[in-house]
Design a protein around this nucleic acid. Structure first.
Length: 217
DNA sequence: TACCAGGTGGGAA
DNA sequence: TTCCCACATGGT
């Protein structure tokens, strides 16, 4: 079986660095806000939503509000819903953002918070928790999403639940933050281009190493 | 028109 | 435990 690290290198050579998580560095420099809070807000807004729609919501927040948890805490609920509306599921997401913003107050710093604590917050599931820990907290937590499950299912014939796959990646890869961040983003990029739910295997540039001749999911 | 997108929580089986 | 559904906007 092709080693995971080799697969990472293959995708990296194919697509180049993805530089996730995208944040507006200049905005945070000027405003003196914490870019990690933009990651947290984006992680909730992107739940089952295309990033394009999340960007619209983030633009609204930038224009009429602020990328900060203190803003989320203070803003009126109806106003928050209006701002994040383009990202869909805005009723739930507004409530979740409020919950998270109150939970991640200054006594709970992202750099030291435990995964189990994050998972207790309503609206933070495993994927969102790991995305926050990895991209906002620089913690070695590999993020598993639908693309990742599809990818290892097809390319490596490996299936399992969230924790199984997370352990597989974490035990197989070097403990390197850059690789964790890039590999997850690269898998998503490949998933968007070719390894879709209805895959474009004929056009896939790495179909030769795929173990799935007839993808079933 | 139908499907999908950087998921989660809750209830039924 | 596993499966199914609601949650909602916007692109293809």
């Amino acid at each position: 079986m092709m080693r995971l690290k080799k697969l990472y290198e293959l995708l990296f050579n194919l697509y180049g660095p993805q530089n996730w998580w995208p944040v507006d560095e200049e905005y945070h420099r000027k405003k003196g806000t914490d870019k990690r809070e933009e990651v947290i807000i984006g992680a909730v807004l992107t739940q089952n939503t295309s990033w394009k729609n999340v960007e619209r919501a983030l633009e609204n927040l930038k224009r009429e509000g602020e990328f900060s948890l203190s803003f989320i805490r203070e803003v009126n609920m109806e106003e928050l819903k209006r701002l994040i509306k383009p990202s869909g599921f805005y009723n739930q997401k507004a409530e979740r953002l409020k919950d998270i913003a109150h939970f991640l107050n200054p006594t709970h710093r992202v750099k030291t918070i435990q995964r189990e604590e994050l998972l207790k917050v309503r609206g933070i599931g495993k994927e969102t928790a790991d995305a926050i820990l990895l991209y906002a907290g620089d913690r070695l937590n590999f993020v598993i999403d639908k693309y990742t499950q599809r990818f290892v299912g097809r390319f490596l014939r490996i299936r399992g639940n969230y924790e199984d796959l997370k352990s597989f990646f974490e035990e197989s890869l070097p403990r390197d933050l850059y690789i964790y961040k890039e590999f997850h983003a690269l898998i998503d990029e490949h998933g968007k281009r070719y390894c879709r739910s209805t895959p474009l295997c004929g056009e896939c540039p790495i179909k030769d190493i795929c173990l799935s001749a007839s993808p079933s999911f």
